[in-house]
Design a protein around this nucleic acid. Structure first.
Lengths: 344, 344
DNA sequence: TTGTACGCGTTATCAT
DNA sequence: ATGATAACGCGTACAA
């Protein structure tokens, strides 16, 4: 298989490499005829410029990277889609990278920044426990989107963040359950989420109970300690099953993600419990699927589209030096659906 | 921000660039002390080699690309995960790329091949209508995994394929529905799938009906003509709703993907129809979620793990020239769950 | 408008 | 064991 380079094309066309380069990159200083001739040979020979070589030279690579921790979480799929669209509008390329649970996202970010000549990074999900020093080594601006709590000791001037107030919104959800008369409210948290968003949502849960003078029972805090994907339905199913087997008494179950809730829904059903007649069930995130379950899921809906759009715009603005780093918090919306009801 | 290069590191350590290169790449010919010294300065200065430059030189980039068409389809998420794991085992890097519905996967493949120095490609999903000529321009081996029908006129020696026999398995599902006594069986296909897997599954549906002497009613073939993601629950929901509004008579509904089926399930519920008492519902794919719906979904389960593993292994074997191109077909498994029952 | 020559950061080859 | 140097494919001053 012959893989032509820019030199080959130049030789074939009987022109210099720079002329070919000009043709490829839509430079103005070129004779339209020459350009057409070059472009046609390029098509003929199936020439594709080597991006590695390009990036080596270029300074303005019009590309950003999106680093996702936990791609299995359906919540992110939508965000990625919207970010992709926004990038396209701006004619930016988007490098999508999936970070393993045990990988360090900042290390990966550094690698990616070097690899491509990209201009910015979006971190999606994951927990956050990096040193300021390490972060500072990232030479391009970055935005944390729906990432858990970022330590206070890290200067807010070196990064941007986009998220809902997980603790507050979580408390609101539990408030709502309490307003329905529930006092025995179990919560489902994946243990591995402890350091991240899960922790915040758990704290919100505690806040709400405390505010209403309801005792917090350790036994109702169901922290899964398994190898399963933290946001998976399977995890929700198995954990709820265990909770039920332990014989805990509760009239409401709050899962800190919709995926967990969907698994829980089935576990409750299997145990012969009706939702919401016997047990109220609530989720968090507002993924599309929550609307299609039977019963549909009461959840705290994050404005995904808006958040994803703003994430991208913010990053582009920072790249263009139109703005400094920002920290935007969004209001989540309590979506009351069929899975919750007054305490029986 | 100072971004050290290999030269800088060499200068700082008072050694030549080649020595640094040897240290980085675990070459044998290097004094352990020198290596240690170099590695420590590398850590100190946060040096990360520029992959673009590396790829420019390297011939053996130990990397493959996975090009996914329709990343929103939950079915692919698992496949990607498994492929990722297999790559890791082989110490291969994996480049994940999402192809837009309107993008040409082969063009993207060509670009990616040039960009990285990768050794192979996995195509996941999508339809297939490329010319042999264009395919031949891909200089690395590729495997089509769960891609729709590949035209007969393309030589089977230039590519590998991994999939179930969509037509046959689809027919099996419809056979099963017929065996339950159903004769008025509606089918849900996304129109955009027409040229790909959806077409095959539709043909299987027709095959089965014909084999049993059941007339095929155009009105029961629900081909959605919307902009929605072909495999989305929303699509399934809206299409089923329309089907019901048209007042079509049927006792079973077969959705050609589980995601569609889940949307359909809700639409049936909203119409006051009980599944499976009033209507039997069946899906295809066997995604995890199908187990957590109420009722759980009867579906044709594809051996995802096995297929993903074999896809990766096959590609690696071809790269290593251990084997020629192969075309493997898997048996799908009919998973009879709660959503189907005898005709009322 | 076009061509020549240099350098981007790295690895591989060849000396030493 | 180590260092100098030539590629890799491309973009871009600069010269023509």
């Amino acid at each position: 298989m012959f893989e032509p380079t820019i030199k080959d094309i130049a030789k074939i066309c009987g022109v210099g490499v720079s002329t070919v380069s000009r043709a490829i990159n839509d430079h103005p200083d070129i004779n339209p005829e020459t350009k057409e001739k070059i472009m046609s040979t390029i098509r003929e020979y199936g020439y594709v410029p080597n991006d590695s070589a390009r990036n080596l030279k270029r300074v303005d690579a019009k590309a950003i990277a999106v680093l996702v921790k936990g791609i299995a979480n359906p919540f992110f799929i939508n965000m990625i889609k919207v970010i992709e669209q926004e990038c396209k509008k701006k004619h930016y390329a988007m490098e999508l990278s999936h970070i393993e649970a045990d990988e360090d996202e900042v290390d990966v970010a550094q690698k990616v920044v070097k690899e491509k000549r990209l201009r910015g990074i979006i971190f999606l999900g994951g927990l956050f426990s990096h040193s300021e020093e390490k972060l500072k080594k990232l030479s391009v601006p970055f935005v944390f989107s729906t990432v858990g709590s970022i330590p206070e000791n890290i200067s807010k001037n070196i990064y941007s963040s986009i998220s809902v107030d997980d603790r507050k919104e979580s408390a609101r959800m539990v408030d709502y359950l309490i307003s329905l008369g529930h006092t025995q409210i179990a919560i489902l948290v994946a243990e591995a989420m402890e350091e991240s968003i899960g922790k915040l949502r758990l704290e919100g849960y505690c806040d709400a109970l405390r505010a209403h003078g309801i005792e917090i029972h350790r036994s109702l805090i169901c922290q899964t300690r398994n190898e399963l994907s933290h946001f998976s339905m399977e995890n929700g199913y198995l954990s709820t099953k265990k909770l039920l087997e332990r014989g805990e008494m509760f009239t409401a179950l709050y899962a800190v993600s919709d995926a967990l809730a969907i698994g829980a829904l089935r576990a409750l059903h299997d145990a012969g419990l009706r939702v919401p007649e016997d047990i109220s069930l609530a989720g968090f995130d507002g993924i599309g699927m929550a609307n299609y379950t039977v019963p549909s899921l009461t959840t705290m809906h994050q404005p995904v589209e808006e958040m994803a759009k703003d994430t991208t715009r913010l990053l582009f603005d920072i790249i263009a030096k139109k703005t400094k780093h920002q920290h935007i918090t969004y209001e989540a919306e309590l979506m009351i659906k069929e899975s919750t009801a007054k305490r029986p």
